[in-house]
Simulated scan of single mutants.
Amino acid sequence: MKKKSFLIICTLVLAFAVLAGCTKTSDKKIKLTYVAWDSEIASTNVVREVLESKLGYKVEMLQVDAGPMYLGVSDGTADAMVAAWLPSTHGELYYEPNKDKFEDLGVNLTGTKLGLAVPTYMEINSIEDLAADEIGKSVDHTIVGIEPGAGIMSATHAAKEQYGLASWKILESSSAAMAKTLQAAYDKQEPIIVTAWTPHWMFAKMDLRYLADPKGTFGSEEQIHTIVRKGLKEDHPDAYRFLDQFEWTPADMEQVMIDIVEGMSEQEAAKKWVEANAGKVDAWISGI
């Protein structure tokens, strides 16, 4: 009887241990939110790949505009994002109104820039040059932009006012549509002016230059920050530690973007980069 009782107790203990393990695994879910910029598609997919392949999480991806991205992390409907462009692009519109509602883990990439860009075959060097009638006519007085909620679009509207470009139009589209329109014009050596930012694959694939911005409308060099919801550290300490240690370079990001634009899926490109950069990934998850 004693032996039988002992076996029953052992079986029950083992069953409870298995159930506890299953519960812990099922709780390992993370929601990442991001904007549909090529740069943020690259970074968010790399973060997802590490969370899933190295830390055992099931990751849900939420693609939204910039405003909802900040609100999602602020109200807890999303766990994290690695796409906060600061201090200028997202600062006044999205970061400042919500900064007490989330946790900023700091910089994950330095060396970003945004502004207006043109192919180098165009004879124009500054936003001030857009006032010249011949330049305006060559592009139908149009700047090709991206999503209307993006910070760079707000800056472009401000530039239109500050540089006296009342007759100019700012075409709203998307990051992908802008890049496609730019590539088509570039292939034909046609004039075009676009909203642009670095890192972006288009600077690796085409000879482009930023227009000088003497009035500083587009700000100076920026950084990309990682932001998480309050309470993530307590709920998922391993994911929190990884996100806190996540950092890479514009060259890293551009490699993922180039693989995607050349036909690889977002997941495949992220997996390729993670497998090829084991040292960096190990540093991100050290101590977990």
Rank of each mutant, 00 (worst) to 15 (best):
E247C: 02
G67C: 13
L93I: 10
M153Q: 07
V64Q: 06
A159T: 07
G263M: 05
K160E: 11
H236Q: 14
R229W: 09
Q183K: 14
A176T: 07
P68T: 09
L32G: 00
N125S: 14
T77K: 05
G216T: 04
L19S: 06
A196C: 03
T156C: 12
S88Q: 13
H225I: 02
A270S: 06
T77L: 12
K188L: 10
A278W: 02
K3R: 10
S167C: 09
V82A: 09
A166I: 12
S174L: 08
E254Y: 03
E49H: 08
K113A: 14
D129M: 08
W197C: 09
D133C: 08
I124F: 03
F246Q: 05
W85P: 04
W248I: 03
A66Q: 08
G231T: 06
H90F: 12
Y210H: 03
I227V: 15
L243I: 10
K2M: 14
V18S: 05
S43W: 10
E222R: 02
H200M: 09
V47D: 01
E49Q: 14
A176Y: 06
I258L: 15
G136V: 08
W168K: 00
G287D: 01
D207E: 15
D75I: 13
H225G: 05
F16L: 12
I152K: 05
A204L: 06
R209K: 15
V144E: 07
F6Y: 09
F16W: 04
G279V: 13
K280C: 06
I30L: 13
E221R: 01
I143M: 11
T11A: 14
T249E: 10
T11M: 12
D259Q: 12
V46C: 10
S167L: 07
A158S: 14
N125G: 11
E190I: 08
V144I: 11
W197E: 15
F218V: 11
E234F: 04
W85Y: 15
A131V: 15
V50T: 00
I124Y: 00
R229F: 12
Y70G: 06
L32E: 00
T33M: 01
S126M: 07
I152S: 11
K205I: 06
S5F: 09
L243M: 13
V50S: 00
